[in-house]
Structure formats: structure tokens, C-alpha cells
Simulated scan of single mutants.
Amino acid sequence: MPALVAARFVARPNRFIVMARLSDGRLVRCHMADPGRLRELLLPDVDLRLRPAPVGAKRSTAYSVVLVHAPMAPRPWVSLDTTLPNRLAGDLLRRGAIRGLGGCAALRREVTHGRSRFDFLLSPRRARDTFVEVKSVTLVVNGVGRFPDAPTTRGCRHLRELTDHVRAGGRAAVLFVVQRPDVGSVRAHGETDPEFARALAMARQAGVMLRAVRYRLTAAGQALYLGPVPVRV
């Protein structure tokens, strides 16, 4: 994989496009996979890291934004790569590293149940199959990771269907992957999406397992596992 390219944020004309300035002064149009608002991160002139598009790729942007250097102390690097949380979660699930989920006998991705498609179906060695939905956390307020940073109808539907599944006798978990180190716990961002906060509380009450883990990102894009943090409801 090619090395990441240093740049500075200039503008975000829409959710999926960022204009960035390279170190040689060129202004480039970049793909932004993360559709979140990111207002506390994407400030003028903030440092970014870009991944060059694959050679021969048929796309209108030459780069993708994958990291931003948070402008507020302690100024960690924060991942904006929406594929990273599921890769990290898959590794943890395969290694049996998430409390309460058990060792992994089999792991399937993108499994449909009801009206939703969930990130993983875990077959533990000593428990029933477990649906696992992964949520990426990049917003931090006073040391608390908050999710979501914008209203999410899809996220609420996921929680309701997992809740119904557990009430019917199944097993399910939500895994929050915090892509920055400056977090001591995770909780729903009820001010932004009160419906999600209510659905998360109902999910925990029904027996859906809520777990969170955090990582530190380097400027080169390496993700270093820092362990679990509690989910507060």
C-alpha cells in the first residue's frame, strides 16, 4: 500500500468531497468516505493524511482522506477511513478479544437479518451465534466518545432489530470502535440523536451487549490497540 501523503484541509464542498492543499501548494480534490459532520475536526488548515487512489482506478478524485490531526489538545490523529473500524473489529472478534463474546469458531461478514444487514455474525466456540454491529466513534466531548455525530435512522433501526432478536432468545452485541486515544468512556450523543440514545438504552435493558474499544492512530496510519473502555447508557 502506498505511503500516506501530507496535506492541509481547505474546504468540504459536500459530504463526500474535501479540497486539500499538498505540501507543494497544489489544491487537490479528495474523496471523503466518512459522511459525519466532523465540524470539530475539519477546521481550516488542519493537517490531513491522504491515501493515493489505486493506479488505474476509474474515479474523479486522486486521493482519499484517511486521517485528520485533531485541532484540540491532546491533538491525536483521528481516522476518517470508514473501512478501518470493521477491519479492526474483525481482528478482535477472530482472536476472541471482546469480553462476553467468547472464542471465534467462525465469522461471517455483512449478514442480513430482518430488514437490516449487520457487520458480523460470530459463531463462538461455547455460545450461540451472535450478531455484532460495529459503530465508529470519532467525536469526543470532555473525554467521552459520543455517537452519533449526526442523526442516524439506519443506526436506530439496527438497534431496534438487535433488541427484538435478543428478546426472541438470540444473542447480539454493539461494538463501538473509538478511532482516537483521548477517551475514557463512550455514550450515546442524545443531544444530536435522542432516538438513538433511547434505542441504545432499550437495547442494553433487553440484553444486547454493549462494548467499546479504543485505538491510537499514527501519522503513517498504523492503528495501535489500547484496550476496552466502558459504554455508559
Results as ranks from 00 to 15, higher is better:
Pro2His: 03
Ala11Gly: 10
Pro13Cys: 01
Arg15Ile: 06
Val18Gly: 08
Met19Val: 14
Met19Ala: 15
Ala20Ile: 02
Arg21Glu: 14
Leu22Cys: 01
Val28Gln: 13
Arg29Ser: 15
Met32Gly: 06
Arg37Gly: 05
Glu40Val: 01
Leu41His: 09
Leu41Gly: 14
Leu42His: 10
Leu42Tyr: 11
Pro44Glu: 04
Pro44Asp: 04
Asp45Lys: 00
Leu48Pro: 04
Arg49Met: 15
Pro52Gly: 13
Ala53Ile: 12
Ala57Gln: 13
Ser64Val: 12
Ser64Tyr: 06
Ser64Thr: 12
Val66Glu: 13
Val68Met: 08
His69Trp: 12
Thr82Glu: 11
Thr83Tyr: 11
Ala89Ser: 11
Ala89Arg: 03
Ala89Lys: 04
Gly90Val: 10
Leu92His: 12
Arg95His: 02
Leu101Arg: 04
Ala106Leu: 06
Leu107His: 02
Leu107Asp: 14
Arg108Trp: 12
Arg109Pro: 08
Arg109Ile: 06
Thr112His: 09
Thr112Trp: 00
Gly114Met: 09
Arg115Met: 11
Arg115Gln: 13
Arg117Asp: 07
Leu121Phe: 01
Pro124Gly: 09
Asp129Gln: 11
Glu133Lys: 05
Asn142Asp: 15
Arg146Ala: 03
Pro151Tyr: 03
Thr153Ser: 12
Gly155Tyr: 01
Cys156Ser: 13
His158Gln: 15
Glu161Tyr: 03
Leu162Thr: 07
Asp164Gly: 11
Val166Ile: 10
Ala168Phe: 06
Gly170Tyr: 08
Val174Arg: 00
Leu175Asn: 04
Val177Phe: 04
Gln179Cys: 13
Gln179Arg: 01
Arg187Pro: 00
Glu191Gly: 13
Thr192Lys: 02
Glu195Leu: 02
Phe196Trp: 09
Arg198Pro: 05
Gln205Ala: 15
Val208Phe: 01
Val208Trp: 10
Leu210Thr: 08
Arg211Tyr: 01
Arg211Thr: 05
Thr218Asp: 14
Thr218Gly: 10
Ala219Tyr: 00
Ala223Cys: 06
Leu226Ser: 13
Val231Phe: 03
Val231Trp: 00
Val233Gly: 05
Val233Ala: 08
